[in-house]
Design a binder for these strands. Structure first.
Lengths: 238, 238
DNA sequence: CGGGTTTTTGAATTTTATCAATGGCTGTGG
DNA sequence: CCACAGCCATTGATAAAATTCAAAAACCCG
């Protein structure tokens, strides 16, 4: 049995390498304000924070995967991001969180008080840039998601999602081409703006086309990566 | 004839008040690096920058409205943001712009070289916070848009969009409840992930329901604001 | 006023959602 | 160890929403 938390477990010994340097952020945070930050371990379905609550901390995911979502009055849900180790959570405009964040599996996060962030921004040269780069990167990813939701078909959305997970899952120790999906079908559906039935049907279509294999509910194998990319980009004739 | 540029014209004398203080950013930028920044006037359909180009500047909209968009290989387009006076453009992760930005009407922007941003982040205490708050705010808006695209019906999307414009348009000198839409139906469609036909049909439905009036193609009047809000939130029985 | 563009409206089609079962895995208790 | 219960995921049939294709109407600018 494999959970996404294994990604985090490995990140302790095999740090996830990321272009913009959240690792360096963690180093800075730990180095300069260790006493003010703490770690928190959470089980699946626990909330990191809730929309509408007063913002107290920013969180850095250390292991596991967190889902960030917004709700409509009638219960419709949109997951706005899946956060992997190295990702930051809860950096909202002052006062209140504008979304809720829920652990999708066992998760560890570092809790950084807001005032520590403010202090570091002033004291530590380069910390502001790191934070801004992380925010810009997050914004770019969210805009990619906007393109998916607004203009891609269900099939294209799912393929895009799998490639997205593939990029985040791609760390040392992972069996070649195998993706672990810590989230359920309903989470994928709420991320892609689809129903679980549509997600399921399109998983089946990809399997039938020989592009992926469904090893188990939470484990898939990408058999033909290039075809998957073609589907994701809508460059396909069928 | 009214263009959105009038918003900008008025912003010179009646500054748009915004909670997070882009005005203060403009003041800081002008105060400390005036020689390095310049203003640029543009006509409708001119591009501020193009996706894939090397990032040279960050832009602050002074007047008019700019549309930021991404394209798929086959030409499908998703507008990811409409930027009004006081909004910032082009703050992408290093190197290349990840989207294109096009003037939707006559536009004035302040051009701030990237290295000026980096320098100010180090030299000016508080500048980093301002920038980060602006980025966080942008992220929050983009996530709201994600909720619209993923989980709202065409009708709800359109109502949400009108309220969104309403909030940005709401400055001194505007006739009460009147919205000016500097963008065409196809821009609205590309923002909401719909076709122009669907947008048009739903404008008509709102008109027929007596919630709005279509004064001209680029001007609408909100007759029943509360009903519009109810539609936007999906709290409606029909 | 006139011509080109943009928007609206209509009919048919496609895509996705909804409703309804069925199938399969997992973990537990006899 | 097996049987069963509960949760997920898949599959199927039908319905609803939005798109596509095709005109017609309205608008805007010179």
């Amino acid at each position: 049995m494999l959970q996404a938390s294994s990604a985090g477990a490995s990140s302790a010994t095999n740090p996830v390498v990321k272009w913009f340097g959240p690792e360096s952020m963690n180093r800075v945070v730990i180095g300069h304000s260790f006493s003010a930050t703490s770690e928190r371990s959470m089980d699946a379905h626990e909330h990191v924070y809730l929309e509408g609550n007063t913002q107290t901390h920013v969180y850095l995911v250390l292991s596991g995967v967190v889902g960030t979502y917004k709700l409509l009055a009638d219960g419709r849900r949109q997951i706005v991001a899946f956060s992997y180790p190295g990702d930051m959570l809860g950096l909202d405009h002052p006062e209140l969180y504008t979304n809720s964040a829920e652990a999708l599996c066992k998760v560890r996060v570092r809790c950084i008080p807001i005032n520590a962030i403010d202090r570091l921004m002033l004291e530590e040269p380069g910390f502001g840039q790191t934070l801004l780069r992380m925010a810009s990167h997050e914004l770019a990813e969210t805009r990619d998601q906007l393109l998916s939701l607004g203009r891609k078909s269900a099939m294209e959305k799912l393929a895009t999602f799998l490639l997205h997970v593939s990029r985040r899952n791609n760390y040392a120790g992972n069996p070649e081409n195998t993706l672990y999906l810590p989230m359920k079908r309903c989470d994928i559906a709420d991320f892609l703006g689809l129903t679980i039935e549509t997600v399921s049907r399109n998983f089946t279509r990809l399997k039938t086309a020989g592009i992926i294999q469904l090893v188990s509910n939470s484990e898939i194998k990408v058999v033909r990566q290039l075809d998957l990319e073609a589907v994701a980009d809508g460059v396909t004739t069928n």
